[in-house]
């Protein structure tokens, strides 16, 4: 399943680079509106959300249910080591899902550069830190809630369902409430958990894309950054407290 999702994540970027190669003359002298990192992030983020739903619970639940935590408890490691290693495992997978397609796009677009491949790499090098930063926020925004659910779920299936429902429904409700109300209700837009990293990513790449339904909320991207970081910190604290009694 992970490899299938990884393959799915790569399809759009390969398609974009391929199409750009064949229609190169159409966009001669202007920026290709399809072949940009923001678009690819928007597409691959959906796949990454599903992957996180599968991987987050898989990383935590079996250890707890099968009693393997007792083995970790007898080894020279702290609770933070264990949780940090699990988060790192998810981060590596996130690299595969979020960063590798972006690198393929980066190299692919460079190969189409009018001034040559190397020149293309150099001229677009400023995109690399932006890619890493955006991937970091997607990882936090999707991974922390997945871990939070997994810390309390006892079975994988329900954990997947709860996580996906939580992420999708929270965003759906936020969009619905924000669109239909005014005043203090606009703050419900902050509960759009699966949309917040999109807003941050747009900001990082300097895009002006208005997220559907949340335009009325009129929040700056820093609010989304704060929500993402806040949930991640809360998840970390809850994890330390919960696993302190287990490890």
């Amino acid at each position: 399943m992970p490899w299938l999702l990884f393959g799915i994540a790569l399809i759009p970027v390969i398609a974009v680079v391929g199409v750009s190669f064949f229609v190169e003359d159409v966009f001669s002298g202007v920026e290709n509106p399809f072949a940009n990192h923001g678009n690819i992030f928007t597409i691959t983020a959906s796949t990454f959300l599903i992957f996180t739903a599968l991987a987050g619970p898989e990383l935590l639940i079996p250890d707890r249910v099968e009693g393997v935590l007792a083995v970790y408890a007898s080894r020279p490691m702290r609770v933070s080591d264990y949780l940090g290693a699990r988060a790192a495992a998810l981060a590596i997978a996130a690299g595969g899902f979020l960063v590798v397609p972006q690198l393929v796009l980066y190299v692919g677009l460079a190969s189409l550069d009018d001034d040559g491949w190397f020149s293309g790499l150099v001229s677009n090098a400023s995109d690399l830190p932006k890619i890493l930063l955006a991937a970091f926020f997607y990882l936090l925004a999707y991974g922390a809630p997945a871990f939070l659910v997994a810390m309390f779920a006892k079975r994988l299936g329900p954990a997947w369902g709860v996580y996906l429902a939580f992420m999708w429904l929270s965003s759906g409700f936020a969009v619905a409430i924000t669109s239909a109300t005014t005043g203090i209700w606009k703050y419900s837009a902050l509960a759009a958990l699966s949309i917040n990293p999109d807003i941050v990513m747009d900001w990082i790449f300097g895009r002006t894309t208005v997220r559907e339904g949340l335009s009325g909320a009129d929040f700056g991207p820093m609010w989304s950054v704060g929500i993402i970081l806040g949930i991640a910190v809360i998840t970390w604290i809850i994890g330390l407290r919960k696993y302190r009694s287990l490890l």
Binding site: P62, G67, L69, A70, A73, S74, P76, M77
Partner: peptide, 18 residues
């Protein structure tokens, strides 16, 4: 941590990843 570096532990309940 220093203690755990020098001991092993076989718990009463099963602790094996199946």
């Amino acid at each position: 941590i220093a203690v755990r570096a020098r001991v092993g532990y076989m718990p009463e309940e099963t602790c094996l990843p199946l």
